[in-house]
Write a protein that binds this DNA or RNA. Sequence first.
DNA 1: GTACCTG
DNA 2: CAGGTACAACGCGGC
DNA 3: GCCGCG
Length: 347
Amino acid sequence: MARTQDEGAPNAVRLGRGRSKRRLGPARLRSYFEDTPLGATIFPTCHDGGMVEISNPDKVYFPDDGITKEQVVNYYQTVAPVMVDHLVGRPLTLQRFPDGIGKSGFMQKNASKHFPDSIERVEVPKEGGTTNFPLVDNPDDLVYLANQGTITFHIWTSRQPHLDCPDRIILDLDPTEDAEPPRDAALAARTVFDDIGLDSGLMTTGSKGYHVVAPIEVDHDYDIVGQMARILATVMAVRDPDTLTIEFRKKKREGRVFVDWLRNRTAQSAVCAWSIRPRKGATVAMPISWDELEGTDPDHWDIDTAPDRADDPVIWPDPNALDVEKVLALGEDHDVEPEESFDRFRS
DNA sequence: GTACCTG
DNA sequence: CAGGTACAACGCGGC
DNA sequence: GCCGCG
Ligand SMILES: [Mn+2]
Ligand SMILES: [Mn+2]
């Protein structure tokens, strides 16, 4: 059960004056392991003695803001208890900037060999081979990856043990450059979800748009769920063709909000809640309530303000069953057909 | 940030 | 031993 | 066949 730290080392951050590395106390677990007494110190995976070291803490990661690597790692340490719930079981794509966002970064799908064993890998087939995605299920591993220069975490819409079947539908509202926050688009997404009996939640992306997220019972594969998402997005665009589009080409969007349903296809990913974005201001993707939509711009929350909400986070609604027939009927009402290959009687 | 390869 | 490099990638429609 | 897109 709960263990205490070795040799009476203090739990508080030990500031190594004049040293190049700092140690954080062991990350705390709260909501994920619900039977853990608050404040107990446990080491579910116990690498590095439960301590996570910050290398190069003073390296500047956000040049415009003077935000250091230490601040980034400390941020993930602080929000880990709530963020881990969003990561558990989901293949991760890491967006890493080892020298800060002023230098070039890269996306990483395969877990590096030097990642600790406590970070599980899941092997996923791809066209010419396989990808070994990393999985995170505890705060220490999240903090480890932050120390590896990860600024943003991207996740699948499915999770173990059912990686073939999404547990949510995401409608990603992408405005064009210099457009107003797509609030009406978010409300329209909520409406189509309501129309088919799905409760939905709302998230700022930390950039220019919102994600509307509808948890679903794990029952349909990516083919089905992807098609349902396409129909829903198309219905939105049919209902409000002047402000919404599913047109992939930017030139053809003509100022309209792109309803991006492609997040729901296999092997695609979407930014994870509580992730920092590699943008000026170190903004954060943050779940918010529908009541907050009017007063919350997509880039409202940031690395400084987000931890304030970690104690009382907005969480996704409970999943509902995805009623495929209802989606097809809604589509037909708007002259939206499923793809030719779609067979409603497949298993 | 780190491993690995090349010179 | 220093320096350079890799570290994603899947469509799917339109040109 | 590439390009544009996340
Ligand atoms: Mn978006
Ligand atoms: Mn998008």
